[in-house]
Write a protein that binds this DNA or RNA. Structure first.
Ligand SMILES: [Mn+2]
Ligand SMILES: [Mn+2]
Ligand SMILES: [Zn+2]
Ligand SMILES: [Zn+2]
Lengths: 151, 151
DNA sequence: TACCAATTGCAAATAATTCTCAGGTATCCG
DNA sequence: CGGATACCTGAGAATTATTTGCAATTGGTA
């Protein structure tokens, strides 16, 4: 069940080395998990932890948190703050496949959508201020049709 | 020091009544605080609590949390998830003055910028799925020039 | 003015995330 | 090949933002 993505793994390994960090079995397992998830899977730290356990690659929840944080800092993962009380993660999409989220603040139903302009705006704004872009996300908070009725 | 904004206050009062809720002194104080803040002031629950105390309108921190949450649900305030471990709030800007945030994930330096297209995209996407728009925010995570050097 | 649901303050509870630290392990060097 | 060093992990405790339960209070209305 654990299928690796050698290319991406090596790219990350290189980035880790540049910082004096290492590619460990735990980090490989977490990256594989995300590579094998379908788009639209937004995983919490706990989700990741549970799936790893099912996948025969259990590890400490602390390590999961540490890895998710590190990978987000490196721009490999993307941290989503949707309408829940905890963070969710997904692979940080390549600029040509970037997508964004429309989320109901009441039932947390989430819809992904694409928009090329967004990424361009992000790149332009970041460059304009001399910032190095890591992730650019539009979040639309709204009420879904169902929740609009039940108010 | 506490100057009210009668118009906006009445609008909110009406919206509260529609839900069977009340306009209390505490809610008025919190709204006034935001109306008297300058753009770019992103206040945490604790910031709000401290400023209210200075303003001679102290109240319980629970009430602050409850009010910030309620006002966000109503679309009066806007909840910001920037690069810190707690939420920040600001007045939810009218559609014609909407703005967005570029934030350094390392030092949390935050820059506001405008972009008309963004709001339009948000409105279009929400409508396209039958959602009722509350808030639409682009967050760009990046590294500021200073932090890029110190790595 | 009396009533009643909404609201508040306080303290306790919750839950996500981080920290501490001791025991591994990869990597580098002589 | 060892040994030194720095990185990494697991386990659990600690931290901290936020929520909740409850009794007392209050706003808005009849
Ligand atoms: Mn997504
Ligand atoms: Mn702002
Ligand atoms: Zn909904
Ligand atoms: Zn910075």
């Amino acid at each position: 069940m654990v299928m690796e993505n050698p290319h991406q793994t090596n790219v990350v390994k290189g980035a880790l080395h540049e910082r004096g960090l290492r590619m460990t079995p735990q980090r490989i397992s977490i990256l594989s998990l995300f590579h094998n998830s379908s788009s639209g899977d937004h995983l919490s730290a706990d989700d990741v932890h549970q799936r790893l356990t099912q996948n025969e690659t259990p590890m400490s929840l602390s390590t999961v948190y540490r890895t998710l944080h590190l990978m987000s800092q490196m721009g490999v993962l993307r941290e989503l703050e949707l309408a829940e009380d905890h963070k969710h993660y997904e692979l940080n999409p390549r600029s040509d496949e970037s997508h964004h989220h429309l989320v109901c603040i009441r039932c947390t139903k989430t819809i992904e959508f694409k928009s090329e302009t967004m990424q361009k705006v992000g790149e332009k704004v970041a460059k304009g201020s001399g910032f190095a872009l890591l992730d650019c996300q539009l979040v639309i908070h709204a009420l879904c049709p169902v929740c609009q009725r039940s108010m």
